[in-house]
């Protein structure tokens, strides 16, 4: 579903991604973790070309992400992205936030787009907030709306860039709940997250990144009980303490 082939990225003199060669199969849930500054956010942002790469290729659903001749908008409409800072549109109501992209990209008629928005709000448990504005919602509620907004485009793959890092602790659970439900429904997901409980329960695989390199990739159970790479071992022991 998603393939990284020899991906390298430099930011000026600093190399932030080293020879990334990975793949994510359809229906897989991959959690990307690592110390801060490791490049995990950069990696996930290259998938929908929010960040360019210097060499190598990334393919999503058999389409080359960096193909200059293809429409980047078309590609992005098939990839769902959830931001750490939610980035809801403050001047639009919740349901308009969700309906905006289907109406403008897929040319969905407003009636259908709103109906779909309401269904998605049901799914994330926020139907009663349909007419509210983002400023009136808590962080956890805003993030759930952001997930619904991304789902409105019916993407085959969802990317999560530290979706709960900006939330107060008591709201983390409600967002993880939505993400778990998505995973159980068979969505292909890459999640950059610190939430190890989520990784243990839902992930099929964990990628450990440090200094722009994927140093270890294994099943969550193995990763958290017996990491192989010394840096991974340090990371796991740091989390425990």
């Amino acid at each position: 579903m998603i393939e990284f082939v020899n991906v390298n990225k430099w930011y000026g003199e600093h190399q932030c991604l080293h020879n990334i060669n990975e793949r994510v199969d359809r229906g897989e849930v991959v959690v990307v973790c690592g110390p801060s500054g490791s490049g995990k956010s950069t990696l996930i942002r290259t998938v929908n070309r929010l960040e360019p790469i210097n060499s190598g290729s990334i393919r999503v659903d058999n389409a080359d992400v960096n193909d200059r001749s293809a429409s980047v908008n078309e590609l992005r409409s098939r990839i769902g992205f959830v931001f750490q800072q939610f980035n809801l549109f403050p001047h639009l109501s919740v349901k308009d936030n969700i309906a905006l992209a289907p109406m403008n990209v897929h040319r969905t008629p407003r009636v259908d787009a709103i109906e779909q928005a309401m269904k998605l709000l049901d799914k994330v448990g926020l139907r009663h907030k349909a007419d509210a504005y983002p400023a009136q919602l808590s962080g956890g509620q805003q993030q759930r709306v952001a997930i619904a907004r991304a789902l409105a485009m019916k993407p085959p793959v969802m990317l999560f860039d530290e979706p709960t890092s900006a939330l107060d602790p008591e709201m983390v659970g409600e967002v993880l709940q939505v993400m778990k439900q998505l995973a159980n429904d068979g969505m292909t997901m890459i999640c950059v997250t610190h939430e190890m409980g989520f990784a243990r329960e839902v992930a099929d695989r964990v990628w450990f990144i440090a200094d722009g390199e994927v140093l270890e990739r294994s099943k969550p159970a193995e990763f958290f009980s017996a990491p192989v790479h010394p840096r991974a071992q340090k990371f796991v022991s740091d989390i425990r303490s």
Partner: peptide, 22 residues
Amino acid sequence: PTGQTEASRSLGMSYWTTMMKV
């Protein structure tokens, strides 16, 4: 915030649509 542009473009909306609607 740049997040507004990023979120809008990530949904697949074009530069102009992003400009006009967001």
